[in-house]
Nucleic acid binder design. Sequence first.
DNA 1: GTCGGGCTTGTAAACGATTACAAGAACGAT
DNA 2: ATCGTTCTTGTAATCGTTTACAAGCCCGAC
Lengths: 333, 333
Amino acid sequence: MSRPTIAGVARAAGVSVASVSRVLNGLPATEEMAERVQRAVADLGYVPDSRARSLKVGRTFQLTLAVADVGNPVYVTMMRAVEEVVSAAGYRLVVTTTGPEIVDEVALVRGMARGYADGLLISPIRVDEDLVKSIRECEVPVVVAGNVPAKAGVDTVRANSPKGMLLAVNHLVAKGRRRIAFLNGPADTVPGTARAKGFADALKAHKLQPIAVAEATDFTFTAGRAAAPALLGVKVSAGLPDAVICANDLLAVGLMHELAAAGLEVPADVAVVGMDDSELAEQCFPTLTSVNLGSAERGRRAAELLLARIEDNDRTPRRIVVQPSLSIRRSTP
Amino acid sequence: MSRPTIAGVARAAGVSVASVSRVLNGLPATEEMAERVQRAVADLGYVPDSRARSLKVGRTFQLTLAVADVGNPVYVTMMRAVEEVVSAAGYRLVVTTTGPEIVDEVALVRGMARGYADGLLISPIRVDEDLVKSIRECEVPVVVAGNVPAKAGVDTVRANSPKGMLLAVNHLVAKGRRRIAFLNGPADTVPGTARAKGFADALKAHKLQPIAVAEATDFTFTAGRAAAPALLGVKVSAGLPDAVICANDLLAVGLMHELAAAGLEVPADVAVVGMDDSELAEQCFPTLTSVNLGSAERGRRAAELLLARIEDNDRTPRRIVVQPSLSIRRSTP
DNA sequence: GTCGGGCTTGTAAACGATTACAAGAACGAT
DNA sequence: ATCGTTCTTGTAATCGTTTACAAGCCCGAC
């Protein structure tokens, strides 16, 4: 005995399938009709098949979230925010890991044409012409969490990392630090480029020269540790920095471990500032001063944009910038 | 001009829809036929509609992962492992947050009857008769990551936390600690009960009495801090513990912050052991000795079980137990 | 009494794929 | 030459819904 279909319910209730469908979808019906249908539904334990429904109405009530790595804490915060908004609106969330390759991202965007989801929220780690093109031609609405050219004509939500950098530098300068170094992630990534430029500009605004700039191979704890010697080692002929800004919290924590190993005290000898203001920032020791780039808010806003665009695909694309703030903790004086 | 359908391709290629479908699904076809279809597909940019396909074949090639909170690091590790296995097998992953309420979990399991996914991987935080019943009656294969009664007749993958506890206690005892306390999470949760019992048994094995047991309101950093006084405060008439085992890493890190605030040194004054061996364990300071309960492996094995059951629903349910190991770091002597 | 308008309900045609079945072609064996 | 077998291809049914359209009914207005 297999699952009852709408036809079974109709038979059991002695009405037509159309009537069953109408009652189930809340369209006007007489009291008696409604009751007969409800009873039959309850008796048979009928549950409508969403596959069939999707085919007919052309919507799946699913949205895809694509990030480079679901395990990365930055994305986790975003994902949680997205999931909240999306599920409150009655959608399910499909998460996909794109990996670091652009071609995989492009394949994913193209694949949306299969229609397994009603929209795509993508946070590309690297962007090129192909990707922009595929996004513009995508069969379903797309929102980008990150930085793509305005001419792409797509809704975007991004952080203002230059401004965030400035907050960090202002704070350090106010505390008397002048020998400021920067620990970046890979410079060929979207956040990597943005932060490198932001750092340079922020120092310029204070008429300072960077003491040292290092580039970790990845935005991870391990890469942060590995890159530390480049900032502290013999190569730094000008002497040690008295403050290091890191492109994310994981790098910062990695660096702090190496500082401790080198016998340097945070913040007395070297101040450390992270970015993302993840939960890690208040869990590490000493607690980490970090630039809050609003990842939760970015996730929330992006999800809202996507829902709005699904509602009305003709609205003009919006480009939202979420403002940063600085969470001051113990890793700076 | 809307998306081309299989009928459009058939027309363009001058063949029947059946032939197009066959070529696309790799069924035998003459060289010429294959080529004509391929060309038409390429010309039109045809992409098959997965909604229609799902309806017809009765499968969506999606799997649902249900956890209490997608943001929780334990689940993140599991999710990453699950996503890897699942996507390698050609499935998409739908993630759902159930929240802490059992009724929501039950509703979710029942809702699987809608057929939007081919299987469910659920990690219930609390279990009752209703939930077990709904799982047993579920329309699609279910695998439980966690502990449900054997009579539920469902594939399960779980950690061996009693054994993990024993590893922790053995280690502490070997290092000369005898005044061992336990910081648990909520005792009415599945992991909470298991770990409480594991702790009691492990101490008994060494003929030791627990110095103190506290129960945090949640498995979080904040709850860990809040619960610290119960272990360190005046209430502990018997004096301070010389070691604390915590039910997860977040609690441990929360506790360590309070220890530092109270002027106690880890591990000299108090040794601390966490559980889960999450990335946090090597990122915090001092690095945290932690019981590895194999969350990644649990995720992987659970996903594999689910795929296997989808393949063959008649196989006898398996109950896999993943063995723990102890990662020794600096928070213990 | 007849007509028209508004409700309710049913019939049947989609949605876009897969696939059972049948028809036709090709080919070798007798 | 005929038959049977195998292989390729096409026709049409099917999956389980939603929904356009039409039919039937009731009711009040003329």
